[in-house]
Amino acid sequence: MSEKSPVLNAPVQSCRISRPRERIVATARDLFHKFGIRSIGVDTIAEAAGTNKMTLYRHFGSKDDLICECLQEVARDVETMWGEITASNPNDPRAQLQEWVRRSAECVVNDGRGCDLANAAVELTEADHPARKVIEGVKRTYYIHLVDLCRAVGVAQPELLADALSLLFEGARVSRQSVGAEGPSARFVRMSEAVISAFADRTH
């Protein structure tokens, strides 16, 4: 995809944001999500954000810096989600876990592009790419949240349950991308509930 790509015809809501830095990040996140990281250049991002490349580089030293900031924004969104899950059912871990299943199912159903972090990890194959540390850190923090929630539910092997649910979620998002909404991902809720029940029924 060249810098004169028709991608600029795609709606980017971030242009309503007043501050250039925020517009650039919101626009880059939107374009990276829709079209991938490698296929979008800084000229395209700057133009879609209603600014110019000089302004973009004043806020971000390189495209890699912008990529990392976009992924950090994803991390902040994830932390907000965990806070909302906790607040939705205070002192009721089982209900919170059910809320996680519900929200995860919505992600799978409503977004056929999949996880921004996983997609970035696939595209950015260089082991020393700075974004890879961001991705690993966010995924690790997410996993710790899920383990803590599974432990609060009272299952005997919270780490193993978190592993199973993580793989179900990641697999459902990939399946949604590859075979569509009517494939195995459509049964994500049923599978997750079955796994949770199986662990809850175990005494050791």
Rank of each mutant, 00 (worst) to 15 (best):
E3V: 13
E3C: 03
E3F: 07
P6S: 12
V7R: 14
V7I: 15
R16C: 00
S18M: 01
R19G: 04
P20G: 03
I24Y: 13
A26T: 08
T27V: 11
A28F: 11
A28M: 09
R29K: 09
I37D: 03
I37V: 11
V42N: 14
A46P: 02
E47Q: 13
E47G: 09
A49D: 04
T51P: 01
T51K: 02
N52H: 07
N52I: 05
K53I: 14
M54T: 10
T55I: 10
T55Y: 00
L56P: 08
L56V: 15
Y57R: 10
L66C: 02
E69Y: 05
L71A: 11
E73I: 04
E73S: 14
V78K: 04
E79S: 13
E79D: 15
T80A: 13
S88L: 10
S88G: 13
P90R: 01
R94H: 05
Q98W: 03
E99Q: 13
E99D: 13
W100F: 15
R103Q: 12
R103S: 08
S104Q: 09
V108D: 06
D111T: 03
G112T: 04
D116P: 15
L117I: 04
A118Y: 02
N119I: 08
N119L: 11
V122S: 08
A127I: 08
D128R: 11
D128E: 12
P130D: 03
P130H: 01
R132A: 03
E136Q: 12
G137T: 10
G137P: 10
K139Y: 10
Y142M: 09
L146S: 03
L149Q: 10
C150H: 04
A152Y: 03
A152G: 01
V153N: 08
A156H: 06
Q157Y: 00
P158I: 04
A162T: 04
D163N: 15
A164G: 08
S166M: 01
F169E: 04
E170W: 06
A172E: 07
S175H: 09
S178E: 06
G183M: 02
A186Y: 00
V189K: 13
V189N: 11
E193P: 00
E193Y: 00
S197N: 07
A198H: 14
D201M: 12
R202N: 03
H204C: 08
